[in-house]
Amino acid sequence: MIWLSWRQFRAQALVAAVALILLLGYLVMLGRQIRDGDYSGAELREHFQGRVYLLDAVPLLTPALIGLFWGAPLVARELETGTHRLAWNQSVTRRRWLAVKLLLVGFAALVAGALVSASLTWAASPLDQFTGDRFSTIFFGTRNLAPAAYGIFALVLGVVVGLLIRRTVPAMALTLLVLVVTQTLTPNLVRPHLLPAEHMSAPVTAEVVRNLSFLGQQPEISGLKVPGAWVISTSELRTADGLRVGADAYGKCVAGSFDKAADCLGALNLHVDVDYQPTGRYWTFQWLESGLYLGLALLLAALGLWRIRRAAH
């Protein structure tokens, strides 16, 4: 059974192996360039940040490619072409047939995801240490443990969707849709709450305002950065006595240029209440999110093993 599964999967595996070898070769070269140049932090950002951002797309896309081209066709293609009638009437049970396929292709998905993540993490680590934004949506999902777990989840999701829909192309489309939704909601709705947040009050000085990403017509801010913290949410701007800043005072400040608005708001002695996760929890979050995705993969695998026994010939 293992030999048969390998023969069916070997073409996809060889294509992936060639792509991985090319990618690993480029990342090794890039990592050496970053380390051998004796660059300052600002120079690293200037010379390499663009390339690293482009490479971040690889581990982001890898789970989708695994789910689409390894997972969705794994069972759906057999059902669509009718070859399952022969496979399911041999001495090997349906469950064992599916389990062996899942283990073989799942191991390949794990290796692919781990190699992509580990090589990019190594190559970009000097730049990542300078930027220090390990909890950002892109960096968290493309470094260390999480990408490998995403790949396993995507594979099993594709297999189960293919088993349920029984058509390869629709299964690929639905797999992609679920992955996009999952990878969009998890960083914004799930990840921030894997552990209870800490709370603090942060002063809003003129320098803080200049570094914000948003300053609107209402007394709210976005993009606040606090050293050693991943900011999850901020309150409205508050005065020293804890009350919301008056609309008139705020409106007068933001009516002028941005620099004048920063100086004006800084003079009001404002602060915001902040919910945050300490950056020291990074590895805890990596393990928790990876465990979450692997747990979902196990549940989907159990569903697939249950469903295949009841699938009609």
Rank of each mutant, 00 (worst) to 15 (best):
L115M: 13
R10G: 13
A206E: 08
S257E: 12
P147T: 07
S119L: 10
E43N: 03
R7L: 14
L65W: 00
L54T: 08
A255F: 05
W122Q: 06
A76V: 09
F9I: 04
R77C: 01
G295H: 01
D128L: 14
G106N: 07
L65A: 15
G132Q: 07
Q12K: 14
V204L: 15
S5G: 11
S40G: 12
D263L: 03
D259V: 08
S222L: 10
R7F: 08
N144V: 11
P203W: 01
G228N: 04
P73Y: 09
G25V: 12
I138A: 11
L68P: 03
T121R: 05
G304H: 03
A99C: 08
L68Q: 02
G228D: 14
L110M: 12
L157C: 12
G50S: 05
S222F: 07
Y39Q: 07
V159R: 01
I2H: 12
F258V: 04
F258T: 05
F130C: 06
R96K: 08
Y282L: 13
S235E: 05
A229K: 08
R96M: 09
I2E: 02
W306S: 08
A297F: 00
D38L: 09
V190Y: 03
V111Q: 04
G162S: 01
A11Y: 13
I232G: 00
A114S: 13
A240W: 00
L164T: 14
Y53I: 09
L185W: 09
T137E: 01
T137K: 01
G242E: 07
L20R: 00
A262Q: 03
V159H: 13
L303E: 11
D273K: 14
A64T: 08
V254T: 04
W230F: 13
P196L: 06
L176A: 15
L224T: 07
L4M: 14
V15E: 01
Q49A: 12
P59D: 09
A99D: 09
R143V: 05
Q90L: 06
A16M: 13
Y282P: 00
G106W: 03
G280I: 06
T184I: 00
F258R: 15
W306T: 11
M1P: 08
L298I: 13
G132E: 01
A173S: 03
A146P: 09
V226Q: 03
V208Q: 00
L305V: 07
G162D: 02
P73R: 06
W6Y: 12
L164S: 13
L215I: 05
I34D: 04
T234S: 04
D133G: 03
V52G: 04
R10C: 06
V100C: 02
A146T: 14
R210G: 00
I21S: 04
V181F: 07
V116W: 08
S91E: 12
L20D: 06
V52A: 02
G50R: 02
Q8P: 09
T121H: 10
I34R: 05
P203M: 01
T239C: 02
V204N: 11
G50W: 06
R281E: 11
L299C: 06
L224Y: 03
N188Q: 09
A146I: 10
S233G: 03
V274M: 00
